[in-house]
Design a protein around this nucleic acid. Structure first.
Lengths: 339, 339
DNA sequence: CTGAAAGCGCTTACAG
DNA sequence: CTGAAAGCGCTTACAG
């Protein structure tokens, strides 16, 4: 199958290649009737511009890079799906590029990729998106960046995020409304800026209720299951036990829950356990986890939308899209038994 | 930053662009001393060939497409990581393309992508890799394909896989060795060919032990948590209950486990429950799941390796790489109490 | 509003 | 073993 080129289309439509180019790129200055007839020929011949030729001559490609830290977690996967969907709708393609700060050659690897790919845009996720040095590299290569849920260098690029602090406050208020006063908190991985924001939201609500959680009720986790389990063991081995535990993500909440189960502590009768994310596993727990639904799919979708529209339009003051979350109440939280 | 071109390198090295091209592509017919000196200049100038120019002139790109069915599951994520790592090592980049048969326009979307991207290779995962019509499209566009764990059209392309049947047999033998005789089986999603292979492996072992599971011990699932839960409920509501349940993947095994827990059936004392995959959640269950570790990372890695090497070398008889699995025994399986 | 010319940075096909 | 020429399929910059 010999691919159809812009020349073929031009000949058939009786115009110059340049005019076809204008039409497929939606540029102005084409007589409506010509625009239409060219569009018809494009459709008839099922013409698709060669992305490489475009990239080569315009030095800007139709590829959008999605940059992740090493682990491809469930969080990243959903963002990716949203990004793929919108990229497709906008005629772009998504290239996945891992960035591993642990490797000493991450800079060269990144520069290699930027050289080779001439990206039309880049989407950076947390936690890598907070590193100034990384942003500098993209700047230097003139690649437009949109960040998802950044926590530092906030003025530097357009971004898409939800309000973690508000969400954590809502969750804490949910527990308070159930009568809980002795609420433990499991912090997330400190390299993710969201960890701090979730902690602050929790703290806001507690303070507003006239409470201040003592240090032994605040555990340091790293967002992984194991750290939640360890935190749960530590919390449940104390007397008295907290009546509720708020873990900064679902995976840790599941760890806390398993720790409770292994000690025959009934959830939610003896202890309420809540998470954050609404990951798939939130529904695989028993009872199912009360949690905060993050708009991950929408974050990916909006990020692509933003990075494409940004290029070309005037970006007066980097835009920031804030997406709504949702408090999802399931079986793992219930009224406080102790009064 | 003005990018360095092959011309710059050629001038500095005192050779023609063509010679530089030969060196960076590892072609033969360059005097060793020239090769070396050119390589040195390339390194000194930190030259990176423009992937678009390469793609345009050779009509073969340095992009490898990774094609997935809609859901980006944990399974897919690990494959992706392996693929990314090896792609990077081979100077290729991974473009992710979703394929959704549910959409009536999936063919046009695919053709669009193949047109635009001129992929240097494509990796297809299960279950989409079994559709002949899809393979035809890749053939027509002359894109080399490697499939991961295909179940149909086995002679058509090189492939990478593990032996699901052997693995399932091993798992069943593990349960038999623990004294179990009344073993239920939860089948996977029938659109995945692995479902059938796992069932056959289970059946092999049972038959060899002189057993044949009655129909009411065989449940149909779809690889998702919910179907495992439903299967568990159905199994545990019968009397007598099976003493062991083998679910075709971990997510369903977790569902079975939750069903057991919700009925106060102790695992593994009263019933052993085992899965397949060694997904992350296998370790988040309590007790942790006995399962089969699939070499997903290696599958992704090998698939990229194969699709790149395939192009150019003589592929006498499509190669098939079979990767080892591992039986991982954890807490969810134990001796049969009933004798 | 439309087009002819030149060029993007490589590789292919061909000479020598 | 090495290179000069042509071309991949678009877009940019410039005329008209």
């Amino acid at each position: 199958m010999k691919p159809i080129t812009i020349k073929d289309v031009a000949e058939r439509a009786g115009v110059s290649p340049k005019t076809v180019s204008r039409v497929i790129n939606g540029e102005a200055h084409v007589r409506p009737e010509i625009r239409e007839s060219v569009a018809r020929v494009v459709a008839d011949m099922n013409y698709r511009p060669n992305a490489f030729a475009r990239g080569l001559s315009s030095s800007r490609s139709f590829l959008v890079g999605l940059f992740f830290d090493d682990p491809v977690s469930g969080y990243a996967a959903t963002i990716q799906r949203g990004a793929l969907e919108q990229a497709r709708a906008m005629g772009r393609h998504i290239v996945i590029e891992p960035i591993t700060f642990q490797r000493s050659d991450w800079r060269e690897r990144l520069v290699d990729s930027l050289h080779a790919l001439r990206l039309g845009g880049a989407i950076l996720t947390s936690p890598i998106c907070d590193r100034a040095e990384l942003l500098d590299i993209f700047d230097r290569h003139d690649v437009p960046v949109v960040r998802i849920a950044p926590g530092a260098e906030l003025e530097r690029t357009p971004q898409v995020r939800m309000d973690d602090r508000d969400a954590a406050r809502d969750m804490a208020e949910h527990l308070l409304a159930l009568g809980h006063r002795d609420i433990a908190f499991v912090r997330g991985n400190p390299t993710h800026s969201a960890s701090e924001r979730r902690w602050l939201g929790f703290h806001d609500a507690m303070t507003a209720a006239g409470l201040s959680p003592p240090p032994e009720r605040v555990m340091q986790g790293d967002f992984r299951f194991r750290s939640g389990f360890d935190a749960g063991e530590a919390l449940f081995d104390r007397h008295p036990r907290p009546t509720a535990v708020f873990a900064s993500n679902d995976e840790m909440a599941l760890g806390v829950m398993i720790a409770a189960m292994s000690r025959q502590i009934a959830v939610p009768r003896a202890v309420s356990i809540v998470g954050f994310d609404d990951a798939e596993i939130a529904r695989m727990a028993w009872p199912q986890l009360t949690t905060i639904r993050q708009p991950n799919y929408a974050l990916g979708w909006e990020a692509v939308d933003l990075v494409i529209h940004q290029h070309g339009t005037n970006t007066t003051g980097d835009p920031c899209r804030i997406l709504p979350y949702e408090l999802v109440i399931r079986g793992s939280s219930g009224p406080c038994a102790v009064s």
